[in-house]
Design a protein around this nucleic acid. Structure first.
Lengths: 133, 133, 133, 133
DNA sequence: GTGGTCTAGACCACT
DNA sequence: GTGGTCTAGACCACC
């Protein structure tokens, strides 16, 4: 279900979070759905349970999931909205990066083309997403 | 000349590197120019000399500057090209980020507008850059 | 595993780098393998951890290893290629040195003999290297 | 007469030494010839006199030149032999470098070709050198 | 004065 | 435990 890249610099717990968020945005995990248990994920990904637990507690705190002790974790109603809001805040970070690329001589046209390409390729993904809106 | 944000998560030495790279791309520092000495920067920014040294050593390795004991550090001929190449590689990173934003429901139109705004505001900076081409 | 010559003029961290690179080229360390931790190496070689860290950080930048906080350092896929490329660039340096030897009256025949001797002695090492290809 | 590369990592005083040695080996400077004064070289190369002085005193110590106070510096009789001896000792250093290249997969054939190329191109230089033998 | 290496020791985030 | 950043201070070679 999840795939962890051990050669990435991105912390494992962040990889877990963003992948689960992605599954939610894609509609694979819907609001109210149960999330695999910490122990099963730890076994399955051969990762330290503490790492999974960290991801879970962060998502819990952000309002993306709710963990009911003894019963497991569930996607919280409204999780999609929370995630969308998070991501919009990332636009600020994006701005700094783009201004560096601008200095590097990358033209606006190049970026526009880049975006169009990105948005045209994964149309099917977007469609699946509609169901979760 | 340089401004360091001690509260930022991005390491001080990286801030130094990207700011010097910025000065080079802007044409403020030209190829062959001498860069302020490690110790003077350390005093000026009230940062430990070792931290500056780290930045210098990395830029040296990357081919952006040339540092020689007793003589100082100089912007290498071809530094601009190296920097541009680095930045272009960042387009790969950008792709992953954008695909997350896409999932978050941010439209291509929004991003296009974002880019246009960014490229229209700093026209004066672009003009100064012409001299370094 | 590694041996450091504290009396050598070549910096300790460079000795570490070239020895690890050597182990990789010999196939002792293979792509994906874990490298001994910074602290353990520091203890074992009785060298300050910062010095090891410097070596690690440089190898990371060069694409020879992949280092991730909390997980450790691993030989990167493709490390061999990077190392080979580095070494080939050293051919340029070699040229300058040889031209000095040439001026000193050392004949081409002498150098040819020198090379043949070098390439004939370590045949066993070459065999071990085959496995890593 | 001499050319200093300010962008090189090689210390200026070493550049001076090796270039003067080169002129001697080429027969441009012959045994007994006067070497340009410290002050004139310093002016001409726009280099700190102390640096030139360092080069001079090292060459003096090695027996390549003799400095007669008040009269200047002269190429010592037998300088060529001293230089040749020095360079032969560098063969040891060469061995280590070559063994690294060997590990990098550079074949003996490649090196042989490299040497042949080097020894064929500068025939004229060798001819000039004959006169000094 | 310049850059470069190394040590010692602290602190942080990640597993 | 892992790697990564930073400080403080020492020492070196070079100019």
């Amino acid at each position: 279900m999840l795939q962890i890249d051990m050669l990435s610099k991105v912390p494992v717990y962040e990889q877990i979070i963003s992948q689960i968020e992605r599954l939610i945005m894609l509609g694979v995990l819907r609001e109210g759905d149960k999330i695999p248990s910490v122990r099963s994920l730890a076994l399955q990904l051969s990762i330290n349970p503490n790492t999974i637990q960290k991801a879970v507690s962060i998502m819990d705190q952000r309002g993306i999931i709710m963990s009911a002790s003894g019963r497991g974790c569930f996607v919280r109603p409204g999780a999609c909205e929370v995630i969308k809001q998070e991501r919009r805040q990332q636009l600020g970070t994006l701005k700094e990066q783009l201004s560096e690329l601008k200095l590097a001589g990358i033209t606006a046209a190049e970026l526009h083309a880049f975006i169009d390409e990105l948005y045209s390729e994964g149309v099917d993904e977007n469609d699946r997403n509609q169901g979760n809106k």
